[in-house]
């Protein structure tokens, strides 16, 4: 890809879960088994206290040695993770590679920009594996192709943050 003047690159982890995909879930009624039948197994099941081991993007690239996590609270949390990464790259002097060397002119003049949107669908279950609540943590706007890597608008100096 470095040999091309323009590059559009995209990386997706797991398929996106849309709100209509989870419309069948009814808190107090739907079970984990019913969710698994529709959405597949979750990426993680943990205790509600949040004592879990996170690694970037849910990729648990650790040794195959079993890891023991002990946290026994009633209920559980099931997490479905999906990620979208988009990157755009433009090399404006790519054509000069064919007529090199040109003294004083760089052979690479690159604009590159992108974003990662990590999304999560979270299901809180009671001690009988019945759904208590469910929610999305979405950052869909973070993942987009941006040809211009610079800020288009000046920063707002009049922002006031009060506590």
């Amino acid at each position: 890809m470095v040999g091309c003047p323009l590059t559009w690159q995209r990386v997706s982890i797991n398929e996106t879960i849309a709100p209509e995909d989870v419309a069948f879930i009814i808190p107090g009624k739907t079970t984990l088994a019913e969710i698994v039948a529709r959405l597949g197994a979750p990426d993680e099941i943990t205790s509600p206290d949040g004592r879990i081991t996170y690694t970037p993007f849910g990729l648990r690239m650790i040794t195959r040695t079993p890891q023991v996590i002990t946290a026994s609270y009633p209920g559980a949390v099931a997490r479905y993770r999906f990620l979208d990464f988009k990157r755009f790259r433009a090399n404006f002097t790519w054509g000069l590679k064919f007529i090199q060397p040109v003294p004083g002119i760089p052979d690479d003049f690159v604009f590159e920009s992108g974003g990662i949107g990590t999304d999560e669908f979270l299901v809180v279950l009671d001690s009988n594996w019945i759904v208590r609540q469910h929610a999305f943590a979405k950052h869909a706007d973070a993942s987009r192709y941006r040809p211009w890597p610079f800020d288009l608008e000046p920063p707002d100096d009049n922002q006031v943050v009060s506590f």
Partner: peptide, 8 residues
């Protein structure tokens, strides 16, 4: 790959 204790 992992052993957990969740929900008892």
């Amino acid at each position: 790959d992992r052993i957990m204790e969740v929900n008892g």
